[in-house]
Each structure stands twice: as structure tokens, then as C-alpha cells.
Design a protein around this nucleic acid. Sequence first.
DNA 1: TTGAAAGCGCTAACAC
DNA 2: GTGTTAGCGCTTTCAA
Lengths: 327, 327
Amino acid sequence: MATIKDVAKQAGVSVATVSRVMNSNGYVNENTKKKVDAAIQQLNYKPNAVARSLYKKTSKTIGLMVPDIVNPFFPELARAVEDTAHKLGYNVVFCNTDENAEKEEDYLEILLQKYVDGLIVASNTLTAEKVKQLNIPVVSIDRKINADIPTVVVKNKSGAQKAASFLKEMGCKRIAHLSGPEHIDNAMERRAGYLEEVGSEPWFDASYIEDGNYEMKTAIKATLQLLNRHPEIDGIFAGNDVMAIGAIKAAHQFGKKVPEELAIIGFDGIALSEATTPELTTVGQPIYDMGTIVADLLVKLIEKKPVENTFYELDVELIERESTRNV
Amino acid sequence: MATIKDVAKQAGVSVATVSRVMNSNGYVNENTKKKVDAAIQQLNYKPNAVARSLYKKTSKTIGLMVPDIVNPFFPELARAVEDTAHKLGYNVVFCNTDENAEKEEDYLEILLQKYVDGLIVASNTLTAEKVKQLNIPVVSIDRKINADIPTVVVKNKSGAQKAASFLKEMGCKRIAHLSGPEHIDNAMERRAGYLEEVGSEPWFDASYIEDGNYEMKTAIKATLQLLNRHPEIDGIFAGNDVMAIGAIKAAHQFGKKVPEELAIIGFDGIALSEATTPELTTVGQPIYDMGTIVADLLVKLIEKKPVENTFYELDVELIERESTRNV
DNA sequence: TTGAAAGCGCTAACAC
DNA sequence: GTGTTAGCGCTTTCAA
């Protein structure tokens, strides 16, 4: 690999000059510029990003920490983040934390040591204090950490409420909720939206809620419990699509027809929600947009450009498909 | 951020000594080691990975290039790669190429400039020649590039043959194939396996094969074409699970019952294949193992440790579920 | 307009 | 055992 020295020698100039033409800063004569460019061409020279980082203390890379890469929501998000980051000249280091605080710490350290310029995190273990210590721009996606930290989320509560209310419209009389984990704020917001809509119904009590841990397997078990406990349930609002898919499977096992006997609605709008039979009605998040927005926002923060807004709470949209019916 | 100099000053030693205790190489007195450790603690010193990289020309990071992060196969693989890489002290930079040669080039360059120590690629545009030029260990996953390049794949052809043969056992008389793109070797291997099994049947001709581009949307269209062209089709072997899911949807639209009137079998064994209704019968790849094996292999190559084997062709397993029936 | 040289934070000879 | 020092490849004063 050719270095800047080689180029300098080849072009018969100093390394400083080479640096100047590469970064197009400082004065440099048209003619010597040409010589340098030619040398760069000939040697197929690429500047060494590590050396550059060492001096400039930046790396043109950002970190993206997600809790569960196997939940399709996150790859879809990651894809958007990666797309726009790449357009803006950054690349992204991917970290899968498994909701594991230790792994998260590990990664944070590694990323800092590598001079990542900024971080996009979906975490519920990360504290505002720790974020401050990082000393680089951080933006939170999908979850709120703290009002001081730029954040991109969706209207979880009202979206959930819409979902429950839609189930009512569809004629459901007993609506259960498959909830996400209690330590995840968006799960609790979605639960709150559900409660807002059905919490004061005469039939309601807490036994209509089960934690499905945002996973398919757990959701299947939880749904079965719900159905055993309350065979009269005719509608389920699942806190995410993966759980809703689990609920469809569980209903199948239990012998309830979806949507005829049991309507199911999810949350997220992952591509997969279209793939089930019946197709899943869901509260769609603008996943790709979210990724674009966070990446854009983070890069602006990194480059100290003005940002209009550091808190985005995007709208969700009810996507009616086959898993809910009109009775 | 504290540097090695700060630590040296704090401990009253030279930077060389600090470096020695950090890397535990060279002699260092028990006592001064203690002093240094104490200083490190006090200053909460973390060595600067960039500076280290610059000198050592390695970065303890590997690149992972995948063609489509939204196909669940790749996140599942990525997860495994990331898990074992992390265990072995490496982190992984994720690159989504969209099967786009230009993007791939871009990434390759960036990764090299950052001194990534090795690369795991799933690509069909990358040539053996280009790989050589990279001058770092590269291992190919899911696709074969060249016999010289260490590779981890599965038995695509025999797996596909098993799938077609299984469909026959289940009583299918007219078996179509939803194929992956022609430029992807594993897709062609799977097609070859299918042909091996049904190619010489009296009813067979090329119109029983459609390209579904390894995507759900395209697969739906392709399936509909297949079904319109040959209403007698009673079995479909899809080259991957995502297309099989599309086929199920298409059958649904077409009014064919799965599996009663149309049996469908996929390939991959992604988590999602269990989530459909009916659950998908599929040829399962050991995805997690594949990720573990490539990551392990690559790290061994990087660290110049002996490797037993540079070509893994793993077994696949037919997972019988609901989308195929016994007539 | 250009070059010399210092320095980013670390490692590894080479001295002592 | 430990310190001094010369780089790794680049950027950026400061002089010329």
C-alpha cells in the first residue's frame, strides 16, 4: 500500500503538498496539483484512514447498538441507518447487545477507543449519565433515555390506543394485550395506550394482560395462557408484530379462527407482517424514515451543523389487513 | 481521555513500561506493575485503539458483507458471526451491499483503509482476483467464489434434491421450482438439485421453473404465473424460505389450499419459517453454526493459527412441518 | 505557493 | 528491569 510519502516522492513534492491537494485546503499551484493527482493515480494511492483518525480524533464511523438483531424491526432500521450514513460518508459499526448491560458496556468502550464519531442506540439500560461521559453525540432510537438526549420515537401510546379502539370498532368485546417487557419504555407506553382504551371497561382486569417479551416463542405461550384463562377473548392487541405472529400461531393451536373468532392486531409494520396468513393488521411505524432521520440527525450533531429539532415523535398508521374483521 | 503519557507520569515510570504492563510482554517488576495498574485505575485509562492500529496495522475488527440485510437469513447469520467474533476479541463492521458491485467496492476500500483484519463476504460480484489484491484473509459464506478462498456453504444441490424428492413422497405429481437469481451460485445449485430429481420426468419442461429473485414480492408474482400456466401444479420447491412464504401467500390468493392442493417446501430454515400458517416445511441450514464456523475460521486465518479445513460444506436437514402433506 | 517539522497515542528496538 | 527514541501515516502550524 502506497503512503503519502510515496506519492510525494513520485510527484517530486513534499508530503504537506500532497496532503493539501487531497484535502483541497491551503494554496497549491494548478500545476503541482496536477502532478500530485497523477502520482496518486499511478500509485493507486488511498489515504490511510487510521492515521487520519489518530490525528483528527474522528473516524467517519458511527456505532449502532440494537438489542436484538433477529427481530426484523432492527434490520429494517439498520438498513435505513446504513443507507443514509453511507450517503453522508460515514460507515456504521453494528453492535447487538442482547439487552445485556455488560455487552453494552463492552461495546461502548470499544467504540470510544476507536474514535467513533457518534452513536445511535436502542437501549433501556443505558443511563443519561453514562451517555454524558461518552463525550460524543448520541441519539436514541425507538426508546427514550432522557429528555437531554436527542431522540427519535413514534407515538406509542396513541398508536396503541388506536389499535385497541380499532378492535372495538371491529366488534371485539373482550380485548387482551400481549405486552412487551416491563423495563422497556415503549412497551409500557403501548400498554398504557391499551389501558386508556379498555382499562375502565367493566370486564377488564389485569389478567387480560400477559408479557410476551417481544418474542414469538414467549408470545405463543402467553397467548395460550390468555386464551385458557379467558376463552371469551375475541381480540388481542400485541405490542409488536413478532408477538402478533406468535398470537396467530397460538390461536391456530388453540383452535380459534383468526379473524372470525379472534381478531389480532400488531405493532411495528415489519415487512413480515404482510407475509402471514391471514395478513396482519398492525400499527405501522415509518421504520425506514426513522432510520433516515436518526442517521441524519446524528451526522448533523457530529458535524455541528444546526438541527431544527432534537426530538422526533413520529406518527404511526393503522394498516388494516386480514387479521381483524368487521363483525 | 487519559493517554499513556498521563499514566506514565502518574505512575512515575516511562511510557514503555506502561506499554509493557498493558501488553504483558517484556520484563517488569512486580512493584512497578502495581504502580502502573494503580495509575491506570485512577485515571480510568483505556488504550487508544486507533494509535495501536496505526502502529500494528491491525484493528481487531472484521468486516461482514451481506447482500441483503432484510432477508432474515443474514441477520441470523450476522448474529452468530458477531457473537463469536466478540468472544474472540474482534468486532464486526457490517456492510449491506444490496448486491451492488459499486457499493461493494466502496466498502472494500473503506474497510482496507481502516485496517480491518479480515473479511467475511456473501457476494457473487467479488472475484478471486480482487480478493487476492485485498491482502487480508477473506472467507466466503453462503456462496462460492473460488477454490482458493476459504468457504463455508451447505449442500445446496443434495438439499434441493431431497426437497423435490420429499415432495414426490408426499404424493406430488407436478412439482414446480421457484428459483433464486441466475447469477447466484447457490440458487443454481438448488435448481440443479431440483432438476436432478424431476428433470427427466415426462411432464417436465422449463416452464415449471420461475425466477423469484429470492424475494417475497417477486416470488408472489412468479408463483401466480406458475399457477396460471400450470394449474396442475401440486408442489412447489422454493429456493429460499422468503420465496416460500411468498408462494404460500400466492397460493392463498389463487385459491389453492396449502398443503391439501399445493404442497410448498422452502430452503434456509429461518426462524420465520415456523411463523407462517401453515408452518413451512423447509430444508434447514445450520445458520448459527455457519456463522460460528466462518468467524472462527477467519480469526484463525488472521492470527495465523493452524486450520484443519478451509472448505466446509455443511449438511442440511429436512424439517417437516405443515406446508407439505401426505396424500 | 511550498517545505520542514512537530505531533496524534502507541509499540518495539535498542541502550543502559 | 526500565527508559529513550524512532517510527506507524497523516495533518497542520510556521517559515521561507
